[in-house]
């Protein structure tokens, strides 16, 4: 059943609507578990659009197996998706900094409050992201340290390579999942790929992971095995590699490949002089967890994250 969660008149004629698809058994007992799937908080992250489609398609194919409630919110920032804008257009605000929002607040805060209110009561919520235009990420669940012990058993069923316990902006105060965890909903972020693109292999793995979780929760009446044992990454397990010069980044490694300590990650070159400004080496052995996608670099730009081992 399609429901409108919040709507507002735009400047001229058009109406912005945040909608959800409420999927529930035909004859509910009232004791069903409820899973909420959220996507499109950032309008440039489109992988979640396919994931929501595929999830709903697969549920509808075998609807008789649905024993609980799945609420799918594919586009929380619909104007951003239309306008290819990460933030809320016109207001230039990151929707995922506005939670818990306010009924008394302005457009974005009001939307945030209504969305949060609608998701409350869920047992679990998954907020699907796909990085930014700058970095490509391996499939991962992100959770904040303060709720790690509670969430790791659920995150482990999401079929992702890594569970990263880290105060990322998507799980910090102001984010949807932070507000949900404070409200008693077990909420986590799934992150993968890069913005403006859909990596179908990653996306299908995420859909499989959602079915694993649904099976565990008793929402999906079929055993589902995950194909991946997630590694847990704490902050000491991840090395950040930032550029110390500017120019164009030419990678020497593939994303998600193994790398040795001292191996070359890439070079930053000067397009005017044809010279190499900086050769960037890996500070540790591990997996290329994140890799720069957008090639224009300034001093300080994050080039890669390496997961595994230690700097020593």
């Amino acid at each position: 059943m399609i429901e409108t969660v919040v709507s507002a008149d735009m400047l001229i004629e058009e109406v912005v609507k945040v909608k959800k698809n409420h999927l529930a058994p035909d004859f509910p007992s009232g004791k069903e578990k409820r899973l909420s799937i959220v996507s499109g908080l950032h309008g440039d992250e489109v992988a979640g659009q396919y994931i929501c489609y595929e999830l709903i398609r697969r549920i509808k194919m075998q609807f008789e197996k649905l024993k609980g409630i799945v609420d799918v919110y594919p586009f929380i920032n619909p104007m951003g998706l239309e306008a290819q804008s990460r933030v809320i257009p016109v207001f230039d605000t990151d929707m995922n900094t506005l939670f818990p929002g306010s009924e008394e607040g302005t457009f974005g805060e009001y939307t945030a409050a209504r969305v949060l209110q609608d998701i409350k009561g869920s047992d679990i919520c998954i907020d699907i992201h796909s990085s930014s235009v700058y970095l490509k990420e391996i499939p991962q669940v992100r959770i904040n340290e303060d709720v790690a012990d509670i969430l790791i058993p659920y995150a482990a069923r999401m079929n992702m390579d890594v569970i990263w316990v880290h105060p990322s902006s998507t799980v910090m105060a102001g984010s949807l999942v932070h507000s949900l965890n404070e409200a008693g909903v077990k909420a986590m972020v799934v992150e993968s790929g890069v913005a403006l693109k859909i990596d179908y292999e990653y996306a299908n793995r995420i859909v499989d992971g959602i079915f694993c979780l649904m099976s565990d929760m008793g929402i999906w009446d079929e055993p589902v095995e995950d194909s991946c044992i997630s590694k847990i990454a704490r902050d000491s397990d991840v090395a950040f590699v930032n550029a110390e010069s500017s120019g164009i980044f030419i990678p020497a490694v593939s994303h998600s490949a193994r790398i040795g300590k001292g191996d070359v990650i890439g070079q930053i070159v000067n397009v005017l002089t044809g010279s190499v400004e900086e050769t960037i080496y890996s500070p540790r052995a591990g997996i290329v967890f994140s890799l720069r996608e957008y090639p224009v670099i300034e001093e300080g730009s994050l080039v890669a994250r390496i997961f595994g081992g230690t700097d020593d």
Binding site: T97, S132, F240, N242, E299, G300, S301
Partner: peptide, 21 residues
């Protein structure tokens, strides 16, 4: 370069990204 807000980057990190630095 990345649309980040300096007044959301404090206390910052001298080894982080540009606005954080």
């Amino acid at each position: 370069s990345d649309n980040s807000d300096i007044n959301r980057a404090f206390p910052g990190n001298p080894e982080g990204q540009a606005t954080s630095r």
